[in-house]
Every structure is written in structure tokens, then in C-alpha cells.
Write a protein that binds this DNA or RNA. Structure first.
Length: 577
DNA sequence: GCCGTTTTCGGCCCGACTGTTTTCAGTCG
């Protein structure tokens, strides 16, 4: 069973307990455990069976046992009991923003509302207002939220690329205003998360109200909230909520830190602070005993006051980064400027939009020393395949290009070969042997089942001429689940054979994800950050690949293509034949 | 239910906002 499914069961049980009126910390424990399970890179099912799930912060013996019961019986006994007491559809009702478990329980007890349909009827008939403490506004809110639910409202998550495009434009407009002083993008976008729900911007201003007006009058704004000296809120035409907060310069660091999150990171930070007799909020850090407040104009001061080294936004997961910062043992993170070449790109020979020369020019423009051209292989289909004789001609073209290429730059002759359903790859060994670089990826038959698919990828890994596995898990963010594979077994095989793993920088892939990247790097697998560029402009997607590497805590030593070609080339499996 | 440079018991982040209410509980990020 997948982590996401297990997490849903644990979260549902938490909500059922909450409806039942359980101790709130117990409820919080279930919700946190669900989040930990959802974010865990390895298989929770396997860990629970081995009894090691309790090694994760937030999972204890009790929840591990509940996971085991879920795996064995397909249901958690405690959840079964509670569902006998409350209709299962009651959990759905708590998903309406503004309605928590307490309110939902009262609606059930007093009005018999147990589903979204009954909730809607009660709101329409104005029956909700008879419950003490609830009024007409609640009915209005319920109907509005039910409407959004049907329309797939503004609460849906977006790809980071979409958020950065809109957020970047708004931040630029705010910075351009003479009313502004400092303006920064905060929130999950600043942490370079895979997907984001909304945009948070924090600022200081010479004229706060005027700056808030800049946001409200921006052409991207559709719905507008009120502008005040504290900030403003809009919803863009494409449905993204944007929140601007403005504070005095002396507490800008506190505000930026707070609204960068993550929530889990902030909670962990405040727990640490509490033990030091300090209380942290977005306005400052208070010494509880003396009442003295420290306001920080930058984040370095915030972390410094708590005895911590500055923590890069990408590392703020709420995990081990705080202990590392306390011990001054934070990893040095890879930067985009340290990347010396890209190892996954396409041209018009397969499904790319630009020619060999155009891709090469773009790579040189980025200051790269090398670019691997890895068009799709012979069985790719969709009319985008490259037959063996075409690939041979391509190798010659690349040799010709390199013969007159500017000093310090070379194209690499490569391929992104399909991993065939039986684990074989396209092209014979002789042709593969003539290439500089071979990426192997799964593009078809990805519903073979875990065992078969894992074995299939491992046989590609064991191929002596396969240098790297492309987009290992095949997921498409917000669209397609990863293939059903045993990633840990794949990582083991990659480590044994010296096969590299890619972090694909397409913003809809980010594959492998940060948790796997960390495990792989720790197992000694060399990681390459690539773009899978299908056009010259998408070479810029290296920023997303690097973002995932940074979130994994990887430094230049672990990212192989931070090396120049001279020292990268010998790391390839083929170089060791 | 989880967890431990105060703790194996007794705690568990902080503040803003909302809608309702005359001082606050619930919800959210």
C-alpha cells in the first residue's frame, strides 16, 4: 500500500477521533503522523512490517500497529468502530473551510447533518442559524465553499513554475513602486516546494498603504480585498490567492522567517525557543521572563538569537535541519551557478523544438562546458523515434560540431533510450558504445506491477552502457502517480553498479524527489541534475532540478555535473569498462 | 498519541481572524 493511501487512513482516523471529542493533542498526533507518512521517502508499509516506522519523528508504537492492522485487514479497527458511531460521510463535511470537527459534530447532533448534501440543504433552508453560536454568515460561507468545491475553486495546488511566474511578476511590480523598501517572496514558493497553494509576499515600505494599492491595482488582480497599512490580498484572474504583508523594517526578518515556513519548521523552531525561555512570533522574539523583545531586520538575526546558523529556505522542512543548525553542521548546498553542463536534452530529431545548433548556443549562453543531446530512441513512437542510422548520422554531426566548437564547450552524443517492457534497451551495444552518454527511461508499460517494473529498471541499471536512469518514478505532479516501483531496491542497484540517477528539472516532474535524492546520495549514488529540455529556453529549468537537490541537502560533491567534463567523464560507468 | 540537554509523566507554538457574543471558542496558516 502506498504512503499516500496509508496517510489518508491515518488522517481520517484523526478526524474521526476529533469528531468523537478526543484529546486534541491525540488528534494533532494523528494529523502530524499522516503528514510524516505522506512525506516519507521510503515505503511506510515495509517499515511498519520491519518495525522501523517508529524511527520516524511522530510515529510511535500505536500508530505503527494501526498501520499494520490496516495492511492486514484493509481497515483500521478503531476507524471501523467510529464509523459505526458516525456516518463515514461526516469526515467529508469537515473539509469545508471554516467547519472544523467541533462544529460538524454539533451540526450532526443537533440537526442530523451527516453529509455534504444534507449540509447544503440545511444552509439553503436557513436551518444552520438555529444552532447556538452559528449564524447567517456560516450558511453563506457553506454555500460559497460548496460552490467552489464543484468548480475546483482557488484552493487547488499549482506547480511551482506557475506560482513563480505570477509571484515574480507581482514582486517586480511592488519593487518598482517608489512606495516600497524591501519586497520578498515568502511561503512554499521561496522554499521551492514542488507545488504551492498560494503566494505570500512580505515587504517593508516608505508608504505602506500606497504599496498595498499597487497590488490591488495590478492587472493580474481579479478579486480585491481591502488595502491597509498591514498589507492587502487579491485573487488573480487564474485563481491564485496572493497575500501581501507589510511591517516596519525592524521586524522584517521575523516576518519573512514566519511566512517562509514551513509550518513544521516553525513549530520545531518555537519548541526549541520555548526551552530557551523564548517565545517566537512573526513580530519578534520575546524573552518570557524579562518580557524583552528582540526584533530582527533579517533572518540571520532571527536564527542567531535562537543559537542557530542561518538555515536556507529549501531546508526548512521541520526535520533534522534545526539540530544541524545548532551544531553548525548544515550541508553546503549546490547552486545553479556551479552546474557545469546539462545531461538530458532533446532536439527536433525527436520531439524537441530546437535544432542541435540552437540547443548548443543556449547551453553556451548559460556558461556550460557541455550539453548531452539525448533524443528519444528507436521504439519511442509518437513519430519521435530515432532509428539507428539516424543516430549514427547524429554522432557524426556532433563530432563535426565539436571539431569547430568554441574552446571550453562540447556537445555529447547521447540518447534517452527506452527501457523496454522486458528490461532491455534500444540500440545494440556497438552503437551504444559509440555514445558519450546514455540515459535510460521508462516511457511505456508502466502498470506492470511493482516486482516486474522494479526488476525491469534494475536490468537497465545492470546494463554496462547505461550511465544514468531518467525520471525514475515517472510521476507527473498533480497529474500522475509515480510508477509502482521499489525505489530503495533501485537505489541499492544503482549504488552497486555505479549507475547515476537524474533529478529531472521539468517543473512537472522534479523526479527523483528530494527524499529519494537524499537516500540515494547517502547510499553513494551519484546524482545529476538535468532539465530534459525540449527547447532552448527550458534549459533554464535547471533551477528546479537544483531546487530539489538543495531541498535534499545536496552539495557540489554529491551532484556529479557540478564537475567540468574532464573530471565528470571518468565517473561514467562506460569509462570504467 | 508522541516525546525527552528540564521530563518515562506531563507537557505539547503563536497570533490573527471570524462570527458570534458581551468575553470567547473555533479555525486557520
Amino acid at each position: 500500500m502506498r504512503n499516500a493511501e496509508i496517510a489518508n487512513h491515518i488522517a481520517e482516523l484523526g478526524t474521526l477521533y476529533e469528531i468523537d471529542g478526543a484529546n486534541r493533542f491525540r488528534v494533532i498526533a494523528y494529523k502530524e503522523a499522516a503528514q510524516v507518512i505522506r512525506d516519507a521517502p521510503g515505503s511506510i508499509a515495509e517499515m511498519a512490517k520491519a518495525g522501523t516506522a517508529t524511527s520516524l519523528q511522530g510515529i510511535g508504537e500505536t500508530i505503527q500497529e494501526k498501520v499494520l492492522a490496516l495492511l492486514e485487514e484493509g481497515e483500521i479497527p478503531a476507524a471501523r468502530k467510529l464509523k459505526a458511531k458516525y456516518p463515514a460521510t461526516l469526515v467529508e463535511v469537515t473539509k469545508i473551510p471554516g467547519l472544523g470537527a467541533k462544529t460538524v459534530r454539533r451540526l450532526y447532533d443537533e440537526l442530523g447533518i451527516s453529509s455534504l448534501e444534507e449540509l447544503e440543504a440545511a444552509a439553503v433552508e436557513q436551518r444552520i442559524r438555529v444552532v447556538r453560536g452559528l449564524g447567517a454568515k456560516v450558511e453563506e460561507n457553506v454555500l460559497a465553499e460548496l460552490g467552489k468545491l464543484g468548480a475546483g475553486g482557488p484552493k487547488e495546488r499549482r506547480l511551482l513554475s506557475e506560482i513563480l511566474e505570477v509571484g515574480g511578476e507581482l514582486v517586480a511590480a511592488l519593487r518598482d513602486s517608489p512606495a516600497s523598501d524591501r519586497v520578498e517572496l515568502a511561503g512554499s514558493a521561496r522554499r521551492r516546494a514542488e507545488t504551492c497553494k498560494d503566494i505570500d509576499i512580505v515587504a517593508t515600505a516608505a508608504d505602506a498603504k500606497a504599496l498595498a494599492e499597487v497590488l490591488l491595482r495590478h492587472p493580474l488582480a481579479d478579486e480585491r480585498g481591502a488595502a491597509g497599512s498591514g498589507g492587502a490580498r487579491i485573487v488573480t484572474h487564474n485563481g491564485i490567492s496572493v497575500d501581501l504583508r507589510i511591517v516596519p523594517p525592524e521586524e522584517f526578518g521575523n516576518l519573512l522567517q514566519h511566512f517562509t515556513g514551513s509550518k513544521e519548521h516553525n513549530v520545531a523552531l518555537r519548541e526549541r525557543a520555548q526551552k530557551m525561555g523564548l517565545s517566537v512570533s512573526e513580530h519578534g522574539i520575546t524573552d518570557v521572563e524579562s518580557g524583552e523583545v528582540t526584533r530582527c531586520d533579517d533572518e540571520i538575526a532571527v536564527y542567531g538569537r535562537l543559537g542557530l546558523a542561518y538555515i536556507e529556505p529549501e531546508l526548512r522542512h521541520g526535520g533534522r535541519e534545526i539540530a544541524q543548525a545548532a551544531a553548525k553542521e548544515l550541508p553546503e548546498l549546490i547552486e545553479v551557478g556551479q552546474i557545469r553542463g546539462d545531461l538530458h536534452s532533446h532536439t527536433t530529431l525527436s520531439d524537441g523544438r530546437n535544432s542541435l545548433e540552437e540547443m548548443a548556443a543556449a547551453a553556451r549562453g548559460r556558461g556550460y562546458g557541455y550539453l548531452a543531446i539525448t533524443d528519444h530512441s528507436a521504439t519511442h513512437g509518437f513519430g519521435n523515434d530515432v532509428q539507428p542510422d539516424q543516430l549514427r548520422r547524429r554522432i557524426e554531426e556532433i563530432a563535426t560540431y565539436n571539431a569547430s566548437a568554441p574552446k571550453g564547450f562540447r556537445l555529447l552524443a547521447g540518447t534517452e533510450t527506452n527501457i523496454l517492457p522486458d528490461g532491455g534497451v534500444d540500440y545494440g551495444d556497438e552503437l551504444l558504445g559509440e555514445l558519450d552518454w546514455v540515459v535510460a527511461s521508462v516511457h511505456t508499460s508502466f502498470r506492470q506491477g511493482e516486482k516486474k517494473l522494479t526488476d525491469r529498471i534494475i536490468s537497465a541499471i545492470e546494463h554496462p552502457l547505461v550511465d544514468c536512469i531518467g525520471h525514475l518514478t515517472g510521476r507527473l505532479l498533480l497529474k500522475r502517480e509515480p510508477y509502482d516501483i521499489d525505489v530503495e531496491r533501485v537505489i541499492e542497484a544503482a549504488a552497486e553498479t555505479g549507475t547515476m540517477l537524474e533529478i529531472n528539472g521539468s517543473p512537472r516532474r522534479r523526479d527523483i524527489k528530494e527524499g529519494y535524492a537524499r537516500i540515494a546520495a547517502e547510499a553513494g549514488v551519484r546524482i545529476v541534475v538535468t532539465t530534459d529540455a525540449h527547447g532552448a529556453e527550458t534549459l533554464a529549468n535547471i533551477a528546479y532540478s537544483v531546487a530539489t537537490a538543495r531541498r535534499a541537502g545536496l552539495g557540489p560533491d554529491q551532484v556529479a555535473n557540478s564537475r567540468p567534463w574532464r573530471t565528470f567523464a571518468p565517473l561514467r560507468k562506460r569509462a570504467k569498462q
